[in-house]
Write a protein that binds this DNA or RNA. Structure first.
Lengths: 207, 207
DNA sequence: GAATTACGATACGGTAGCGTTTCGTAATCT
DNA sequence: AGATTACGAAACGCTACCGTATCGTAATTC
């Protein structure tokens, strides 16, 4: 849960060190968490001020005091979201750790709040390209960076071939996880599939 | 545009060979096309009877005469959708044809009506799992079958290694296209990337 | 203690879409 | 010709959400 809500955020519209009652940070968090929940469950289109207020247990006035439009609200929610970092495996070989991370990604795609937000934002990217870009840069890119690090570790330790081009390896490693996870709510994937695929990609001789 | 509208569809609710004025097939098509357009552009949640009527240039009554709920309407639209088959390349090596098909898939992901419908249905899969399953089985599976055929052709002709397991090869070939295409509207992919990836997957010695 | 600001609750008129119904007209079957 | 059904257009009451405003109360600063 950490803390946060960066200083530069739009949130602080009028009440920067004012004299009266200060704004409740609890209310800030309640609102943004509610937005993230709704986006994950039913999509950005279905975010409504009234619905968020009801869900967060907060008055509409408290929302409008902070965000004067739905766009500002969703943008702030995404900025607030920063990195529900998945636990990065630390034990085992580079292959095992990479497998752990990637299989976690695959499994989280349809089920986790994180994964569902990504899909819903992607679906709305036509309507709201600015938000899509923001999510891509603030959420997806950092995630990918962690995978890159793990691949680099494997290369440095000699476990993976040294001539790997990471920019080519990324789609080859991550892509199959998207393929396997994306529709798994209607067509579940056997648990051994991920490792079969990773083995085929990283140890072609065993294919 | 073909023809179609299967006989078993829900559409024929009361007017199977009745006596009066027959239902216009033009109206059938106008309605379902409008639904597909709206789903592609703004998502299933945003499909409204009024919106469809206006867009199709049809009265609401004509819609309700055929579909008594929005669910029935969207399901019928998907069933009507059957396969806007992408042109399957016929010239060149198996690699070249596979590349053509897969690169077409990648490029169509964010831009084509087909690709946008898939993402929007996926995003709504929580709310409407039945529709998600229908789309998956009627649209996605047949598409994948065509890719499988192309891979099998390459194996049969000796161009691809004979020990390939197609169930493993599919995620490895298709997955990277998802990875590269999915966010390309906010982060365009260089055109040579697809072929780099395919080369790395199919000719590991050149990696 | 007085001024100031945030809070929850509640209410307002306005808009959009819902599902249904009624109308007059058009097309097809017997 | 007459019966029957589909068509577009329009109107119905209903609900949800919008953005705004007003209230009394709570929490801070001066």
């Amino acid at each position: 849960m950490v803390d946060v809500l960066s200083e530069e955020t739009e949130v602080a519209k009028a009440s920067c060190k004012g004299r009266g009652r200060p704004r409740s940070e609890d209310v800030d968090h309640l609102i943004l968490e509610a937005v993230l929940d709704v986006v994950a469950e039913v999509g950005i289109t279905s975010v409504s001020m009234e619905g968020i207020a009801a869900r967060a247990g907060v008055s509409k006035a408290s929302i409008y005091r902070r965000f004067d439009s739905k766009d500002k609200l969703t943008v702030a929610a995404v900025e607030y979201m920063r990195e529900q970092s998945p636990e990065i495996p630390t034990s085992g070989t580079a292959f095992e750790r990479l497998h752990g991370l990637l299989d976690g990604l695959r499994a989280s795609l349809p089920s986790s709040r994180y994964g569902r937000i990504m899909v819903n934002v992607l679906a709305a990217s036509n309507e709201n390209p600015a938000l899509a870009k923001l999510v891509y840069e603030r959420i997806l890119i950092p995630r990918r960076a962690r995978i890159r690090e793990l691949i680099q570790e494997g290369i440095d330790s000699g476990e993976f071939p040294s001539n790997i081009n990471i920019d080519v390896a990324m789609p080859i490693l991550v892509g199959p996880m998207l393929y396997l996870g994306m529709w798994s709510m209607v067509d579940p994937v056997s648990e051994t599939k991920t490792i079969d695929v990773l083995r085929a990609v990283l140890n072609p001789q065993h294919q």
